[in-house]
Nucleic acid binder design. Structure first.
Lengths: 249, 249
DNA sequence: ATCATGTTCCATAGATCTATAGAATAAAGT
DNA sequence: ACTTTATTCTATAGATCTATGGAACATGAT
């Protein structure tokens, strides 16, 4: 006599709902973006190169699987990852892919970023050095993602503007760059550039989501403690307070 | 100018290879089984109620994604999960599903197992009590899975035989039952039965895979330290040694 | 060599998924 | 009341996936 045959079939069907989300490359890409910051449908479509209606359709699928949630504001709909478990899951997917799929490593290596990847700074080391003021931490992701959450004391330097703003970085201080995660190449790219210009620079291990998941402090809002450009403080609406440390549920 | 557009698309396509495996309920079921023990195609087809050719096709998909590996023996092919990362991933999937999908909890509850689930024993507590000899640990999964790896000192009591073998369990000792994991209902079922018969019984938190992932000792082979039935020691061929603790790769 | 066994390969019908244009909504503005 | 703006719904053609029977393949056994 089989045990709970009917119940188990249902159960696996439920699990498959989650699989359905990550079976399509674009949906993984969307989920990845949403783990960094919430965005409107329009922004997501633009970021992934999808037609608007197609992006919307993908988002519906993700929503049915409860991996994303929405927030309405005026006529706009903002999507976001539904909880930290989702980001953790995406992280697990990345880890598994790196562990099992040689192709992934190969792709990462094929996009040569010199030796930027070789010696990464650990989170604990960075934390210690931040306290001693020995480093400049730069967040090289797009500005929205920085605004949605960043390492305290980090400054926003989206890679695409890095070169133009090199003079803002002290040549005598080591620079630590971070981005979205281990599979993201923004930080290695930034480090490669910095090194080429004579800076002492390294990447942080992993990215912001992992930092957050480690229970380390995260700050949000666009302002950063800019010692150089005091930049008139913006209207304030974007300046949500820093929620510190672990919300472990 | 977009960054590494081409490389990233490839990357997400690689990640989607993994999604492809868990998009089909039966493949998740197969993967679940393979995280417990290796099995032949025939056995897998039988266990999941699939036609042989269909099961084989599913296994090919899983193999292409590198989530399973094979071992040939005579004319038979044994499939197994390709490394512990795979089991960890399946665990992450289960966790996410439980966290995000109310339906999952509902299904679990709909299959009533009384209050067997309410108070589970933690791994550390069990470990301590095993050392004091205060408990009887029973592995209620099918015997093959017990043979492939079990908690040291646990005895194999597949649920389907539990009732018939109740007299082998001392009424004065607490019984701790475990099975495949948090979504598996074998242990709760066993505990419900035991309680109905006057035993003091509880479930272990999670199942064997989680125990193993916690780096706790795992023993394999069919023999168990049976204090009651000394049972002439079998020919030895099934008696692989116990590999202890964490193989962290 | 020949046969038996267990598995994979092949072809295919039916089901499901994807991208997309255009219509329909819904919430603000005017 | 209209008009905008942002998004979702609808319909659909084309692509991909699934289950399955039967053929084809290996590997042992006789």
């Amino acid at each position: 006599m089989e045990h709970d045959t009917e119940g188990r079939a249902d159960l696996y069907e439920q699990l498959a709902r989650i699989g359905k989300v990550i079976v399509h490359p674009k949906r993984i890409e969307l989920l990845d973006l949403l783990c960094q910051a919430e965005r409107s449908v329009e922004a997501l479509a633009a970021a992934t190169g999808l037609k608007l209606t197609t992006a919307s359709a993908h988002l519906q699928v993700m929503r049915q699987a409860r991996l994303v949630e929405i927030r309405r504001e005026k006529t706009r709909v903002f999507y976001r990852a539904a909880g930290e478990e989702v980001c953790r899951f995406v992280g697990a997917l990345n880890d598994l892919a790196r562990a099992r799929l040689a192709e992934v490593d190969q792709i990462l290596r094929s996009i040569d970023t010199g030796s930027a990847d070789t010696e990464r700074v650990s989170r604990s080391e960075l934390l210690a050095r931040i306290q001693h003021g020995e480093v400049v931490v730069i967040d090289v992701r797009p500005e929205e993602e920085y605004a949605a959450g960043h390492i305290p004391s980090a400054r926003s330097f989206p890679v695409e503007h890095l070169e133009a703003r090199l003079d803002e970085l002290d040549l005598n201080l080591e620079v630590v760059a971070y981005c979205r995660g281990p599979l993201c190449l923004l930080a290695p790219e930034a480090v490669a550039l910095l090194r080429a210009r004579g800076h002492h620079a390294r990447c942080l291990e992993d990215g912001l989501p992992e930092w957050r998941q480690a229970g380390l402090p995260v700050e949000s809002g666009l302002d950063s403690p800019l010692p150089l450009k005091p930049k008139a403080c913006p209207s304030g609406e974007v300046r949500r307070s820093s929620r510190t440390a672990g919300r472990r549920r």
